[in-house]
Design a protein around this nucleic acid. Structure first.
Length: 861
RNA sequence: GCCCCCAUAGCCCAAUUGGCAGAGGCAGAUGACUUAAAAUCAUCCAAGUGUGGGUUCGAGUCCCACUGGGGGUACCA
């Protein structure tokens, strides 16, 4: 055994693991080496693009950041160890309201608050040590960044994808700005300010995301398995495509037809009235020539509806309300005359703002019909079984189907329950006897033949409202002429810089602060000399984040938003890591903008993020941490007390990354203990780096190589907690070999220690770096490559075969892994334990799965 | 209401995807070290997988129903 100590100079017997000393020692070394700069000249390694959702600079980093960036970093460091050139950039999503609100509160410039927070976060990140490429840092509030936001806007404007329209918009009365649909929560409040959002009619800028609705929906199929199922389902839901038909109804005494959208054209014969949204223009048209009494009734109803809060209006339990407009529509297939009502259960901005009401087969229509005593007519007999696609039903002499006797017992008018199931069409002329599916198809054919309807699709998705009446955002690069003309700012004049906030009143007041900056807002056209006004609004900050992943590829490029050649090299992002709170907003917008950029020829892919990992939340005692509730774990405190490595390891080990972590359930101290343990193993290795591992302890080597065989798959499927557990196991085994086995000089001990060090560097880079150094290698372990598992070491010399009788373990035998089915069965049959267990029983079947298990099935005589 | 996910030891979590329920950690117990405690180290202890059925030679794993918890979504025609 060699007594050589390696490296000799700093290995002393009483040295203990000291995370502060280790951090202090290696941080400057890493700063010097910049090991994570990606895309260096001549680098021929295959590439991976790993991206964390960039942070918003509100104060210092918190535990949520610690978790998300920990996972992104594990993935990044893993792929680096697998021989990839990994791009793992960092930037700041630094435009937005909190900066502005803080600025108003303290009377300072939003820039000051924003950039000092960014500096603080950068410092914390440096110590936390994610493997960022610091040469590509971007801040969306830099003119060098938002210039390209403006470029993007103009590209979209040229294509007709950015447009202005007057519409009812969501207005946040606290922040005094409009909001996108996506920013309004279910309860009708603003996701940012919490205020109850009201509707206001304003002329605003929109991005035409609805043009991409089908692609945004259909392309989700490509992401199946690579994105969280939950996110896919939320996006599908949000886009909300409905397939059905448009049906045109004539209106008595009205020149224009009313079109309605329905998913159930098969029930057209059951439409006994029509309902229009009271706040739709259509309703106003219909009462225009009404009697004063009707007009007045409608007006007071409309006023009441508009006073109803969004919260109450969305409550489906609410009693149906409405008012009869004293107008009649004509059913295009039956010619039947049906009354038209206005009711707020019909939404003005979905479909055509009007529905054909089929109370027998739609619960809402039925509730309404029962409320106002309107007729209910069953046209689908849901008691008739549908056994095939072809109708099988008896008809009487006149072609009327013979219905079961008990149809009355399920009459929805009586039960109050609409019949929405499948069945046979009845009371429906040419549709009689058809199943629901066939009747839908046939009804559309009939409508198309008569020219009174057609198949149609409708979406829940609305166009993306992007203008904001606030200061701290990207100015919209449009000039307004006095005649209302819109003039795009020429490309060479970009960026349109934000004016200094000094002297501007940033307080929310319903109009953009930029409009008051006269010197900034007034522009004289050099050609014509006429005065133009700059658009006073700024862009939704989700525009900034919809393409930032591309800017990282050319962060320093002053000539273009990004270099398409770089995009071809790196994009799309291989792994995106971030919170599920962005499941709809950010991810949908980024997907949309990517498709637009693809159509414009700037990129050659249609989806920005090939895979997404949503980390869970960090909780304390079962609930979300918050300063006001007093249950807060401060990132800075944890970092100071336990160090970056212990904190990161704790997050990785706490459980599956997509699950929430309760800080009360984990032990940072336990993680620190393990780090010290692993570190001591490396410290104790006393063989030189060039020893021949093959001569080492074979049992330990098998453990090491089993780890090497398992860890990559586990890491790639994000089972970081299991990888850590396996590392602990391997460390324990190695410790035993050092203390009571082959000893610290055994070559297998060095092999195990090196494998532990390289794998541990994913979770605990400082500790691993120090271990790597003690093992005799140059910094940095981040460049160390994972070894491949040796197949010969994975084959066990003998395995334990289980012998069961009727599924219960009765015996076990040591066998060769290559044992034949016959031999194993013979061994099993020869077992005394089996003989005891089968006394008085007859063996009926023997299942052999060599070399693992034999199951003997028996029966009593 | 509809859709999705989850339920394994006191706690956090594993289980090669149908083959011995336990890898790892926390807590606990015992011992070593210490005048003592903390820290550290060593050893040990622990459930038959939420409930009821089914498929199978064999079920934590697949199927059905239920219970409990979490999430998404909803007058979207």
């Amino acid at each position: 055994m060699s007594d050589e100590q390696y490296p000799a100079e700093e290995t002393t017997a009483d040295e203990v693991y000291d995370f502060r000393a280790i951090q202090d020692r290696w941080l400057p070394v890493w700063d010097e080496l910049e090991p994570f700069r990606a895309g260096r000249e001549g680098d021929v390694r295959p590439r991976k693009y790993i991206l964390d959702m960039f942070p918003y600079p509100s104060g210092d980093l918190h535990m949520g950041h610690a978790e998300a960036f920990c996972f992104g970093d594990i993935v990044s460091r893993y792929w680096r160890g697998q021989g990839f050139d990994v791009l793992h950039p960092i930037g700041w999503d630094s435009f937005g309201l909190p900066a502005e609100n803080a600025a108003i509160k303290r009377g300072i410039d939003p820039r000051e608050w924003t950039y000092s927070n960014i500096d603080q976060q950068k410092k914390s990140f440096r110590l936390y040590a994610p493997s960022f490429d610091w040469s590509r840092v971007l801040h969306t509030s830099d003119p060098e960044y938002y210039k390209w936001n403006q470029w993007l806007f103009l590209e979209m404007y040229k294509k007709g994808l950015a447009y202005r329209k007057a519409s009812w918009v969501n207005w946040d009365p606290v922040d005094q700005t409009v909001l996108a649909n996506e920013q309004v929560l279910d309860d009708g409040t603003s996701e940012r300010s919490g205020a109850v959002v009201v509707k206001k009619k304003l002329t605003q800028w929109y991005f035409k995301i609805t043009d991409y609705a089908d692609r945004l929906l259909d392309d989700l199929n490509q992401l199946e398995g690579a994105w969280p199922a939950k996110v896919l389902s939320m996006q599908r839901n949000w886009i909300g495509r409905s397939i059905g038909a448009e049906v045109d109804f004539e209106v008595e005494g009205h020149p224009e037809k009313i079109s309605v959208f329905t998913t159930r054209p098969d029930t057209l014969y059951g439409a006994t009235f029509m309902v229009v949204a009271p706040d739709a223009d259509l309703a106003a048209d219909l009462v225009a020539e009404a009697t004063p009494e009707v007009a007045e009734a409608f007006q007071s109803y409309l006023t009441a509806v508009q006073k109803t809060s969004e919260v109450d209006r969305q409550n489906a339990e609410r009693e149906k309300t409405g008012v009869f407009l004293h107008r009649y529509a004509i059913n295009p297939v039956s010619g039947e005359r049906i009354p038209i009502w206005a009711a707020d259960y019909v939404l003005a901005d979905y479909g055509h703002g009007a529905v054909m009401a089929v109370p027998a087969h739609d619960q809402r229509d039925l509730d309404f019909a029962r409320q106002f005593d309107l007729p209910v007519r069953v046209v689908v007999d849901t008691t008739a079984p549908v056994t095939g696609v072809l109708p099988v039903i008896e008809f009487d002499g006149e072609g009327v189907p013979i219905l079961p006797d008990d149809i009355e017992s399920i009459d929805p008018a009586v039960t109050g329950r609409a019949l929405t199931g499948d069945g046979r069409l009845t009371n429906s002329g040419p549709l009689n006897g058809l199943s629901k599916t066939n009747a839908i198809r046939r009804a559309i054919e009939v409508l198309e033949e008569r020219g009174t309807g057609r198949s149609a699709k409708t979406y829940r998705l609305r166009d993306w409202l992007i203008s904001r009446q606030r200061y701290w955002g990207t100015p919209i690069p449009i000039l307004h002429g006095e005649d209302g003309e819109l003039i795009p700012v020429p490309q060479e004049q970009l960026p349109v810089r934000l004016p200094a906030s000094e002297g501007l009143d940033l307080k929310p007041k319903g109009s953009s602060p930029l409009g008051a900056a006269d010197a900034w807002a007034t522009v004289v056209d050099p050609d014509t000399g006429r005065q133009l006004r700059r658009d006073p609004d700024t862009m939704d900050t989700f525009v900034d984040s919809s393409w930032y992943y591309l800017r990282f590829l050319s962060a320093q490029d002053g000539t273009q938003a990004f270099d398409p050649a770089e995009a071809e090299k790196w994009a799309p992002v291989d792994q995106y890591v971030g919170g599920v709170e962005h499941a709809i907003l950010h991810l949908l917008y980024a997907r949309f903008i990517t498709k637009v950029l693809c159509d414009l020829g700037y990129v050659n892919f249609t989806e920005p993020f090939s895979a997404v990992l949503n980390q869970g939340m960090v909780l304390l005692d079962g609930s979300k941490m918050s300063k006001s509730k007093g249950n807060l774990v401060e990132f800075a405190d944890e970092l100071d007390e336990h160090g970056a490595d212990a904190l990161r390891l704790t997050l990785a080990f706490a459980g599956p990354p997509e699950e929430d972590v309760d800080w009360a359930d984990v032990s940072v101290h336990g993680s620190a203990k393990f780090l010290a343990r692993a570190w001591r193993v490396a410290k104790d290795v006393s063989s030189a780096p060039d020893v021949d591992w093959k001569k080492g302890d074979q049992a330990l080597r098998r453990h090491t190589h089993r780890f090497l065989a398992e860890a990559p798959g586990l890491t790639e499927s994000f089972k970081f907690n299991v990888v850590v557990a396996r590392l602990m196991e391997l460390t324990n085994v190695t410790r035993k070999v050092i203390d009571s086995g082959a000893g610290p000089a055994d070559p297998a001990v060095r092999e195990a220690a090196e494998v532990i060090t390289v794998a541990l560097s994913m979770f605990a880079p400082y500790t691993a770096e120090d271990m790597w150094h003690r093992l005799g290698y140059e910094a940095t372990v981040a460049n160390a490559q994972w070894r491949k598992a040796s197949p010969t070491l994975l084959v066990e010399e003998s395995v334990t075969a289980i012998i069961q009788v009727d599924g219960k373990v009765r015996d076990r035998v040591e066998v060769s892994p290559k044992i034949s089915v016959e031999d194993l069965e013979a061994l099993a049959r020869a077992s005394e334990a089996v003989a005891r267990a089968t006394v008085g029983r007859q063996i009926v079947n023997v299942i052999v799965r060599a070399p693992k298990i034999v199951n003997i099935a028996t029966t009593t005589f």
